[in-house]
Design a protein around this nucleic acid. Structure first.
Lengths: 342, 342
DNA sequence: CGTAATCCGTTAAGCGCTTAATTACCCTAC
DNA sequence: GTAGGGTAATTAAGCGCTTAACGGATTACG
């Protein structure tokens, strides 16, 4: 068994049949009798046979692999638990099946496009997952041009593209109502980069809900998910004329960073300032005070996306799947706003 | 260009030569004249030709892919920036080349072995990366039995297996000497699971250095990298008879968790308790007080491992590569121990 | 009893590429 | 004038698997 990989013709020889018969038997298709099939199967696993993916791909045109490329600078990617959780979910749905995951991490969108194009050209993947969609995303055009099956992890913005999304608007509203119930009126949302569709969705929901709740002073400012940018922005917001009493962040790192800034400015959390993080994580749980956060079903998203992608690859129509809803996990970083200073 | 992928025979037809000639030309081997080669090349990229990885694999036996399987429970994997940084480094070394990364995340070691075996059987990878080696690791035996090129990310424990390692012992000594210089005598190391080789290496270095420095009360306790276990262990250690004045952790999550426990026990950091984290991360930078930490060149490790693996695949001998040394980054979680209570 | 249908299996082509073997041609040398 | 030696191309086999097309034997049926 050392170093030598058996092929179907080894099996054929051992079983005294043709390779065609072996192929039919191993793929459970008609054309071989039950006893023969069983005999072939036995020999196959006695020999430890595993189909060569290259040979199979070449003849049936399927790669039995899906691709994911993540385009975030190395600096920020290690920090966010998001991707690892996503990958966990993806693997969960892939486990047991014949499909593998091809991963690429890049730091610019041209490289990302090139990666998809190359995988397609090399016939290395049967389909791809698309994350972090931006307005008029060139990847959408690319996959459509290439007829490369793709599933978007995000809101349904492109009509005929399958996607798996989470109802963020709901969570935005929940968070706002929660803060308002606590008595907050001046609330600022510290968002990620404007270019992302999900940023826009949340900001829109935020603005709409704020208007409905009569929060004239609610507003949105932008950072880039990094702790540095978040610190800068937070510092500016908190030292402005009438500073907000609550801040809602688009990820965990920025919220934790703001915790540091608050400390530095002598503001105690939550007594003088309330903080809400977006993706919940160990980070949120571990810092003091622990951060109230919106928990999204990230792994579930990944798993659902994989299942959908596999279906689409098999010719299923482009569905738009919604995951379970995010939920607000209140911890110690949110409380009543301080009484107005006289 | 839509949906149809050109093959070398399309190129051959367009150039009026045989497919053999095209193959020679595109692979830069002798057998075609310069003008012809140029003409073929031109046509190839006008057509947007990309070699089919399946066909190439089938005929030359190379998969142009390497595999990495990470065996950590989903619960903990999202938390540690380690893997994402590692993957960033890996990608960096892979970028531009023809090789892709196949990733698998599992939560038990049987599945990990199965994954390697399957990849080998399917001829999907040319080699693999091995992380988190344990004593008598079955993966070592497996890759040797299969003659599957492999590079270990960790200390050279198996003589003839190539590896990329970082001198952790050095860092352990540096940390201990630093703490002793600050005046600490009672120091406890909160380590990861005993089974990992790197845990053992560091613990051994810790014990040896402690003895050399005459620290009779230095000792090692174990947790499992999770914040819960770390909190439990830390609580126990800090409430024991003569509690330590300094704690050294095997990752960032555990150190942050301990920060919470210290807070809960009314111990201020660093005045009454000093804390050192092992892998540096945003987490360490962002919490208050910011954690002193040992920074290791993780991405560099990944990149070096890839380069070594690619060499080994090409028949190079099994080297043992050392990365640059880790360094202690002192922050606000370490200081002099409190004066002895009378 | 002849013929059709059914079942089980073989044959061979083809997927896209690499490469050893072969051929065709042009030079140079004796 | 022809043997010898390059060079530039073609041919064809082969990588391991799938699958349409085919064939021989057995069974069913009128």
């Amino acid at each position: 068994m050392v170093g030598k990989r058996p092929t179907i013709s080894d099996i054929a020889k051992a079983a005294g049949v043709s390779t065609g018969a072996v192929s039919y038997a191993l793929n459970n298709r008609p054309g071989v009798s039950e006893p023969t099939r069983r005999r072939i199967m036995d020999i196959a696993d006695r020999l430890g046979w595993v189909p060569s993916s290259a040979a199979r791909s070449l003849s049936d045109g399927r790669a039995n692999a899906i691709g994911l490329v993540v385009d975030r600078p190395a600096r920020v990617i290690g920090v966010e638990p998001y991707f690892m959780q996503l990958i966990s979910g993806i693997q969960g749905a892939l486990a047991g099946g014949p499909t593998s995951l091809l991963l690429q991490v890049t730091d610019n969108s041209a490289a990302e496009l090139a990666a998809y194009r190359r995988w397609w050209g090399e016939r290395r993947v049967d389909g791809v997952l698309l994350v972090d969609l931006v307005q008029n995303d060139p990847r959408v055009e690319l996959v459509q041009e290439l007829r490369l099956p793709a599933v978007v992890l995000g809101e349904p913005v492109v009509p005929d593209l399958p996607c798996v999304w989470t109802d963020d608007e709901l969570a935005v509203v929940e968070v706002l109502e929660y803060l308002v119930a606590l008595g907050h009126r001046r609330i600022v949302r510290v968002a990620g980069p404007t270019k992302f569709v999900h940023t826009q969705t949340r900001s829109r929901a935020f603005t709409t809900a704020a208007a409905r709740l009569g929060l004239a002073e609610a507003r949105v400012v932008h950072a880039d998910y990094s702790d540095e940018a978040a610190a800068r922005v937070t510092r500016r917001v908190l030292t402005s004329g009438t500073p907000p009493t609550a801040l809602v962040f688009d990820n965990d790192v920025m919220a934790v960073s703001a915790l540091g800034v608050a400390h530095e400015l002598g503001l105690t959390v939550p007594d003088q300032l309330s903080l809400v993080a977006w993706d919940d994580s160990a980070l949120c749980r571990l810092v003091r005070p622990a951060l109230s956060a919106v928990r999204r079903p990230i792994a579930e998203r990944g798993a659902a996306a994989v299942r959908l992608l596999l279906d689409v690859i098999n010719g299923a129509p482009a569905e738009q799947v919604k995951t379970s809803d995010p939920e607000l996990v209140p911890r110690s970083s949110t409380s009543h706003p301080p009484p107005p200073t006289p």
